[in-house]
């Protein structure tokens, strides 16, 4: 006889672990300029957190929690990356020329803000979109 399954432990662990994984992915995304990391691995970690949600719950619940159209996310990411490249043309510089400047921000202190972060944001969004599209398409097919 098949007993009813109970996912209480898995779901409780997932509720805590998802936040830790998302925080780690954001850290690894912003640390990419000076230490290992960057947009690609950060995006993979974020999608791994969403996959953990998919494993503990189901497609419908996760769609209710995160109502994101992942194909649109890919398009937005590509616009970010291309926009960063095109932006350089307005300043009489070649395509994809990046600029950076040091600012004294109130909370962070002496910080260098670089336009490569905007390019990396595009990479981040595209990686999340592509991974989640692949996995949801495979998961939905009966």
């Amino acid at each position: 006889m098949k007993t009813k399954t109970n996912d209480l432990i898995l779901q409780t662990v997932t509720k805590v672990a998802t936040f830790v994984i998302v925080l780690f992915s954001i850290h690894i995304f912003f640390a990419g300029h000076y230490t290992p990391g960057g947009g690609f691995i950060g995006g993979l970690m974020t999608s791994s957190a969403i996959i953990l949600l998919l494993l503990a719950f189901d497609l419908k619940t996760v769609k209710a929690i995160l109502p994101i159209n992942y194909l649109l996310l890919v398009a937005v990411g590509l616009v970010f990356s291309v926009g960063t490249g095109v932006g350089a043309l307005f300043f009489d510089a070649p395509f994809l020329t990046h600029a950076f400047q040091y600012f004294d921000l109130p909370l962070f202190g002496h910080t260098s803000l670089h336009t490569a972060v905007l390019f990396d944001t595009g990479v981040y969004l595209v990686v999340i979109g592509v991974t989640m599209t692949i996995i949801q398409t495979i998961g939905e097919s009966e």
Binding site: T5, L55, L59
Partner: peptide, 11 residues
Amino acid sequence: LEKGEIIENER
């Protein structure tokens, strides 16, 4: 191993 499918459509 337990349920036969990894991502369910509706629990």
